[in-house]
Design a protein around this nucleic acid. Structure first.
Lengths: 399, 399
DNA sequence: ACCGTCCCTGAATCATTGG
DNA sequence: TCCAATGATTCAGGGACGG
């Protein structure tokens, strides 16, 4: 159900201990401060900021207290925070839920378009996870092991010897004793989830809309099918859509009639558009074999993952220049490599390109340089890494 | 210089606006609470914890105020927080430095050994970055582009067309106009840096010792050579070592004479040891070729990177079982593959193993199963992926 | 309810082996 | 003698258990 109204009023009507999970993405402190400013413009101008944060805190505390009341004993709350107010919100959560019920500070991290801000690029948001009691519902998720883990060793049981040192256990016959199954590594509190792509089908025009995967994780780990999920600031209704898709009951509240209408429409026909990045994982983009990456690294070039003809761009003093490079594949003739590269560079209008010849160089001198001159571009072919590096200066575009 | 004494007393002696950068890793609130608890064991009970946090807050506020005083106008402070007190510390920072001088909440994320905790595995720590004024020193660092970025496109200059829409610029001839150099993506506020491993030589016996790389980033971005770096809780002296290596002046304070002695010893001969993980990166561990990885993925097996005979372990319902699998190489006879696998499993004491035969199967039926029985183990040979998947249930160890 | 003790975990290194 | 492969070890932080 989606209700049009004020979260506080609506929650007050609800029964105690009736909700399995609350997710909130409240209005940002900056936004809130803005509206408060507009409303009470006459009353205070001087102590504006202080009044602002106190007003925001009492606004949030009232609502969080109601959330606490209506949560079941096995319930949890996930509070999505504004970067300028997360510390104030956590103080309120400590007061309302108790510091002992703090479970996690979840970091949602993502890559983002950069801006010109002085300082570090903001690329994460914080979600606080508090439970009502220590009997909270939790469904663990397990992931694969680290690349650096010795997976062939972790099946071996261990014990402590007489000196308290950990050693591997062996049977009487001298064989290692084995663990029967390994679930994997528990999900950590840092979640790398792509920011909702502006073009994604999922997007319905709400500025703070959250990715479905983020909400899916929260709903999966902290509730069971049949539980009721509440979102008191439901906006475009992502939480509700996820709840519906995962077989949970759902309840959304928003002050905006437009938001309520939008949520209801989305719930009629919930779409789950997975971005390619999500489905395939970040590694799937790294479809080049390690060899190519290692060569690019030696040449000092930035790898390109999404172009058939181009493997990377040269770097000079750590800065990328618009000179594409291709590395000849093992199963590829030099002519075919030339064609692939030429096609790519002509399309994008590059003036110079480098082809690194890796095959059929047995009868050639230590390094060769051949320039294909056409009206549009120059193609340099080298067959040693050294030659490429030595000739980089030639390739820089004159200013 | 390293001083043995109380940070507060020592800082009070120092001149105002004399320090370029402060890094603090104060004692954890939990430790603090523990000692307070032990002291007041008789009183204890209800508002024990409350007294604890207030004491911690005033302890920290006194020290942070002194830090603010002695920082230069271009200076910054980096406060490494305890997971149970980060919100309280940020409130103090807002009070002392002003909310407008908040620059970043840095997330140091890492993989570490797991434990049986109910809930999410903690895998990050928070560092707050505040500046004294908005004229703070900041040296940007740039990194490579995301795997999902169209690197071949970002060289193209853009403009706005008549309708205000952004389009690529072209010259009169219809070619794209190119940007001459790109620096890369600015460093974000999420730093994935390996945790100092228990076996690392770099460790000097301080449990809270920080990786050199973490401090290097801080010192590099927020100070210039010649600046003085202050660490009022210097512990094993990592901050000072980094400052020295990067040509900054340094000043460390610690109440423990042992810590001071250790820091001084480390400073005599500052060593920056790079671990393999840092030097080569995570990709270096993935020495399996793509083909094998893809097959393992289809079979649903966890890859093993460091064992010659074993390529992976089978998974059943997402859980790894101690049944190793090997995939026959193209240039390898089935006998040789059998031998390699046998050797590995005998050494580690596995009872069952699977060999996937990829060659010489033209004259064979659609799938074959051959079990080599020896007293110690059973070796199953299959020649289709389907057969392996279908027979997994046979391979599970009985309880 | 609370304490101390013991056990389990997996990441990533050091140390040793073996070709 | 050297280098890659792999066996061995350590750590902090939970939970479980017993007193």
């Amino acid at each position: 159900m989606v209700i049009n109204g004020d979260g506080l009023t609506e929650m007050k009507k609800m029964d105690s201990e009736s909700i399995g999970l609350v997710y909130l993405d409240p209005p940002f402190f900056t936004q809130c401060r803005q509206t408060l400013k507009d409303k009470n413009l006459n009353e205070h101008s001087f102590d504006d900021q202080w009044a602002g944060i106190e007003a925001y805190k009492s606004f949030m505390k009232e609502r969080l207290s109601e959330c606490q009341r209506i949560l079941k004993k096995t319930g949890s709350i996930f509070l999505h925070c504004d970067r300028y107010a997360s510390h104030h919100l956590r103080i309120i959560l400590d007061e309302v839920f108790g510091a002992r019920n703090f479970q996690s500070e979840i970091i949602w991290s993502y890559r983002r378009w950069s801006n010109a801000k002085k300082g570090l690029l903001n690329a994460h948001q914080v979600i606080f996870f508090y439970s009502k009691t220590d009997k909270f519902t939790f469904n663990p998720i397990y992931n694969g092991y680290s690349e650096a883990t010795n997976i062939d060793q972790i099946f071996q049981k261990r014990k402590r010897d007489a000196n308290g040192k950990t050693v591997y256990r062996t049977s009487e016959l001298g064989n290692y004793e084995l663990i029967e199954e390994k679930k994997g590594v528990p999900l950590s509190d840092v979640w790398e989830i792509p920011y909702l792509n502006p073009k994604a089908r999922e997007r319905v025009g709400y500025p703070t809309q959250k990715p479905i995967l983020l909400l899916e994780r929260i709903v999966e780990i902290a509730s069971n099918p049949g539980d009721t999920i509440l979102d008191p600031f439901c906006g475009s209704g992502t939480t509700l859509v996820v709840a519906k898709l995962l077989g949970r009951k759902y309840l959304g509240i928003d002050t905006s009639p437009d938001a309520v209408a939008l949520s209801e429409k989305r719930l009629e026909n919930p779409i789950r558009s997975d971005s390619t990045l999500l489905k395939k994982g970040r590694l799937a983009y790294s479809n080049q074999n390690t060899e190519i990456l290692s060569l690019l690294n030696q040449i000092e070039a930035e790898p390109v993952q999404r172009n058939r003809g181009i493997d990377g761009f040269l770097k000079v003093n750590g800065k990328m220049i618009p000179v594409p490079i291709r590395i000849q594949r093992k199963d590829e003739t030099i002519e075919s490599a030339k064609q692939q590269l030429s096609k790519a560079i002509q399309k994008n209008g590059f003036k110079r390109a480098v082809l690194y010849q890796t095959n059929d160089k047995t009868e050639m001198p230590l390094f060769t340089l051949s320039i294909s001159n056409t009206p549009n571009y120059q193609l340099y072919v080298y067959n040693t890494i050294d030659a490429i590096i030595r000739n980089k200066s030639v390739l820089i575009y004159e200013r």
